Structure formats: structure tokens, C-alpha cells
Simulated assay, not measured.
Amino acid sequence: MTSRVLTVGFDLDMTLIDSRPGIREAYRALSAETGTYIDADLAVTRLGPPLEEELRNWFPAEQIEEMGDRYREIYPTYAIAPTLAMSGAREAVEAVRAHGGRAIVVTAKHEPNAKLHLAHLGIEADAVIGWLWAEAKAEALREHDAAVYVGDHTGDVRGARTAGALSVAVATGPCDAAELRSAGADTVLADLTEFPAWLDAYAAGADDRG
């Protein structure tokens, strides 16, 4: 039997939390403050990539850094309270702990804001690592020896595969199940409510192999 502690990584937006209501409000506030039109309803359908990629749709290149900084400053005021936990999120994290494992969050989001979301929703992670997107997520996954990474975006699949971790995808974000499978996800779940049963089967298999 292996002595390796099971570590499972989770993405944040649209995996553990439904941040669309909060992000919509933050974009609307930034739009009102700057006088620049932002289609907030459209923007929240494209969550996953770094903030700067979305801001390029609305601001000239020379303003992206300034607008990104300002968005992150106002974010706690507008985005934390409206954000909800995804169905099964708390139970998914608890399932990892029930197997004696560690649950970490690896996200492209500004790390302090990610921590605010988790604290507000009462989701306790063993570590929270921000500012990492797609293949760059492998840095944190390797550092924490994560065997599994759970996310909703094809970028999360790429991050898991780059790290040599098992990619478990949930079809709760902008990418549907077919896209996630095509990107190379090892397993695609409808949502996190299916994760505890999947983890039970995975852990049993790991014990058999160990």
C-alpha cells in the first residue's frame, strides 16, 4: 500500500464557486467608473483565462495593466457576497479529507481574492495558489505532488496533463463535456456532486495498485 498522501487540486471559478453574479457586478462597477462599455453578461460566459484576456476586449492595450489592478481593487466590494458555492463543492473537498488527503486550490484568479471567496463560503483548502493559468498550473500541482486536478476548462485539462496528474473535468463552466474530452480529460463529470463516488472508486483502485 502506498504511503503517498493523496493531494487533489481544484480550480476555483465555475468548479468550486459560481462567481458569475459577483464578477458581473465587478465588471459593471468598472464600466461605470471608467465610462467604458463592458458587456458583463458576455464576459461571465468566458470565465477561466486570466482577467487581462477579457479586459483586452474592452480597453486599449496601454490601459490593460491599470484596469486589471483597479478591477482587483474593487473586486472584494462587489464580487464576494453575490458568489455562491457550486453544487457539491463542500462535499467534494470533504471527500478528499475523508480519504486522509489534502485539497488545494490552483486558480488563475488573484490569490487574495480567491482566499476571500473560500473564507466567505466556508470552503477550507489546505493551500491556495493563484495567478496560474493552463499549463502554468502544473507548477503548483507538481510542487504539492497533486495526483488529481479537477477543473471546468480545457486550460485546466492542459494544466493537469502537463503536471502528470489525472485530469477530472466537470462540465459546469464554459466548456462542454465533448470539449473537455477532446482536450484530453481522463474523466468528465456532470458536476461535483458526482466527485465523492468517483474518488471512492479512484482511491480503491490506488489501494489495489499500491
Rank of each mutant, 00 (worst) to 15 (best):
A103W: 04
L51A: 05
T154P: 05
S3T: 14
K115V: 15
S3Y: 07
R28P: 14
I80Y: 05
S87F: 01
D13K: 01
E54V: 13
V150D: 00
L47W: 04
D41K: 09
I23W: 05
H117I: 09
F195P: 04
E62F: 09
R209C: 08
M86S: 10
N113P: 03
T154R: 10
A134Q: 08
V128D: 03
R90W: 01
H144V: 03
G159A: 09
V150F: 00
R102E: 10
L118K: 04
R20E: 15
I64Q: 10
L30Q: 10
F10W: 03
I104K: 01
A40T: 13
L132M: 11
T2M: 12
R56C: 10
Y75I: 04
L189Y: 09
R46P: 07
A147K: 02
C175G: 00
R4C: 06
L132E: 10
A197Q: 02
S182M: 14
A178Q: 13
A81F: 04
E124M: 03
E65M: 01
A43C: 14
R97V: 12
W131E: 15
R161W: 00
W198M: 12
A146R: 04
T34I: 13
A43T: 14
G151Q: 09
P174K: 12
Q63C: 02
D152K: 06
A163K: 04
I64R: 02
S31L: 15
R209Q: 08
A40W: 12
T154W: 02
T162F: 01
A108C: 04
L166Q: 03
D13E: 12
H117W: 00
Q63A: 09
A40S: 15
D18W: 00
A43Q: 15
R70Y: 07
R97Q: 10
A95M: 09
G101L: 11
A29E: 15
A92G: 08
L118Y: 02
D208V: 07
V168R: 05
I64C: 06
T77P: 03
G122Q: 10
A140T: 05
D13Q: 08
T45D: 11
D152H: 07
D207E: 14
A119C: 03
A43P: 14
T162L: 08
L189V: 15
V168A: 06
D69L: 10
L30T: 12
G101S: 05
E135P: 02
V170A: 04
A98S: 11
R90K: 15
Y37S: 11
R24E: 15
G88L: 08
E94D: 15
Y149K: 00
A61G: 06
A169Q: 09
A95Q: 09
H120Y: 07
L132H: 06
K137T: 09
L12C: 05
A40I: 14
E54F: 03
